[in-house]
Amino acid sequence: MNETGPIGIIKKLVSFAVVGAVAFFVGYRIQGRYFSGRTPAQPIEFSHRIHAGDNKIPCMYCHLYADKSRVAGVPNVKRCMGCHAVIKTQSPEIQKLAAYWEKKEPVPWVKVHNLPDHVYFPHKRHIKAGLECQQCHGDVASMKRITRVSSLTMGWCLSCHTKRNVKNGRDCWTCHI
C-alpha cells in the first residue's frame, strides 16, 4: 500500500471507484427494500381492519370489478357515502370523506400495488383460477393501513406460475402483450 508514482495513484483511484459503486448499489437497494412506500400514508386513514376484519365485509363488495375486469376497482365515493351518510358521521376521518363528497371530488388514494405499463395483469383471470385475494395482497383484514406484502417483481410472478403449473404461464406474451 505504500507504492507511489503513477501506478499507485491509479490503483487508489480504482479502489475508490469500487467502494463508491458498491456503496451506491447498497444505497439503491436499501431504498428499494425499506423506504419505497410499501405502506404510504393515504388522504383518509382508511382501515381495512375495521371493514374487512371487524365487520367482515367481503372484498368484492367494494372492489366490485375483480372478477369482471383487469382492474379490481377502487370503490366510488358514492358507494362509501352509501353507508357513511349515516354510520360514524362524527369521526374526523369520515368527515374528511364527507368533505370530498360535498366538493364532488374523488378521493385521491395513493397506489400501493403499482405495476409498470408493460405488464398486463388481469385480476379477472386470477379470480377465475380460484386464487384468494389474500394470496397476493396478504392478510388485509388485519391491516390498519394497507401495505404491500408481495414484491410484485417478475420473479415473484413466475415462481407462482411455475409452482401452479399455469398453462403458458412462463410465456413472455402472457403478461407482456
Partner: peptide, 25 residues
Amino acid sequence: GGLGAGFVLGKASNPPGAKLIPYLI
C-alpha cells in the same frame, strides 16, 4: 456519498404516489 446517491436516485426513479382515482359516481 455513494450510499446517499444510490438512495436518492432510487427514490427519484420510483416516485411515490401514483394516484388511484375512483369514480365519484
